[in-house]
Nucleic acid binder design. Sequence first.
DNA 1: CTTGACCCTAAAGCATACTATAGGGTTTAT
DNA 2: ATAAACCCTATAGTATGCTTTAGGGTCAAG
Lengths: 133, 133
Amino acid sequence: MRIGELAKQSKLSIETLRYYEQAGLMDTPLRLENGYRDYTHASLTLLKFIKRAKQAGFSLKEIRSLISFREAKDQHTLDEVKTLGETKLAEIEAQILHLQTMHKELKSIVQACCGGTASAQDCVILSALEPKL
Amino acid sequence: MRIGELAKQSKLSIETLRYYEQAGLMDTPLRLENGYRDYTHASLTLLKFIKRAKQAGFSLKEIRSLISFREAKDQHTLDEVKTLGETKLAEIEAQILHLQTMHKELKSIVQACCGGTASAQDCVILSALEPKL
DNA sequence: CTTGACCCTAAAGCATACTATAGGGTTTAT
DNA sequence: ATAAACCCTATAGTATGCTTTAGGGTCAAG
């Protein structure tokens, strides 16, 4: 299958597929006589794997690790895979906490603002951002 | 005050200060005879404002808006400021939801892995990332 | 008078994940 | 034969918020 077909089936752009190849996520595929890339169904399966891993929050760099685990399962331990997952889980938790902190802070100051078309002269939001004396 | 002193007091790097100036967050300060930047206390107050806004989750671009509101309060309405805050709140909420979705998904597959030093041959994490047939 | 601390500019680099552009072959259909 | 649709490479651009580099003045102390 040529790149256009793989793009269609994977719902990724042709450019993204070439980018993934260059980024080391996919092996360089065989080439047809005219130089066109010639993919097999395995490429599609790999792309679906990549998409699911992305959905789960892994970066392309981390996905490279996941792919190498996947390609040589017997040379890796369950712990290696699980550690990657747990590390990512911890990162996501930290990000959520950070966002929740910001949200709480921002919500309290935004809610204090009555809004309206009056001048922002005495805006409590702007005041809240001023350094405390 | 020269830039080194302002950096110390604001706890930002000298480079960041010059970057903020170039990014339009701070006015170009007066210069001493030798060309050195000469800041006043107002610059420090502004930097603290910027830092608090960052803490609340605003991007530098949004902070530019906040600063222009702050500098000409009487030419803006409460609604303008409040809308900026509410939009940002909504963005943060969306990000939290997205992260929570990923977290839930990832947690369920990571927890299913028993770990250990056995080969990843039958790793449920890797399996979970494979496309379903 | 030189050393070290401080300041300057302009431009490039970093990380992430792509997207776009320029310039040029190939294949398919009419 | 020509136009549309497809493929190729290499390079640069996008967004964000800085940091780093290169190359070079300024100033106070010893």
